[in-house]
């Protein structure tokens, strides 16, 4: 019961935020707060552009989604499997393949550094066009 409540709460939050993002393009909208890290340092954090990326994804534009935040696109399937396993307990073996924090630590750190390097080809990773 406890697990079911948690699953329900989690899924409804996911669906609600997807619906909000679907109908409100994040771009320059004032309804989305700016990333604190970006506002303070003008540098991008690994998550910058993820709202815009999800918006593009929800509207079926994968290329644009990748342009806003490539990391998100890579991590999204991993998250899906991880969430599914932790909520239902199924597919534990599949999740074990992806459950490697070290890899993500390296991936996220590299992405963080790379997207802040101000020349081509790294600028591709920047969330702004």
């Amino acid at each position: 019961m406890k697990g079911q409540t948690r699953a329900l709460l989690f899924l409804s939050t996911m669906i609600l935020s997807s619906v909000i993002i679907y109908f409100n393009p994040p771009g320059n909208s004032r309804y989305y707060p700016k990333c604190i890290f970006k506002s303070l340092t003008t540098l991008e954090c690994p998550g910058c552009g993820s709202a815009r990326s999800i918006y593009s994804l929800l509207h079926g534009d994968i290329l644009e989604a990748a342009d806003f935040n490539l990391l998100l696109l890579i991590l999204l399937p991993v998250l899906m499997i991880g969430i599914f396993t932790s909520l239902t307990g199924h597919c534990q073996k599949l999740w074990d393949i992806f459950n490697k924090p070290r890899i993500y630590l390296i991936l996220i750190s590299l992405f963080w550094i790379a997207r802040n390097i101000p020349f081509f080809p790294f600028t591709v990773l920047h969330s702004d066009k």
Partner: peptide, 25 residues
């Protein structure tokens, strides 16, 4: 290792999330 939560935090534009990924590791 609570990796899912940690990755979610990173993706939600929260640099604190990376600390969570480190802890998870």
């Amino acid at each position: 290792n609570n990796l899912v939560l940690a990755i979610l935090a990173v993706v939600c534009c929260l640099p604190l999330g990376i600390v969570a990924v480190m802890a998870s590791n």
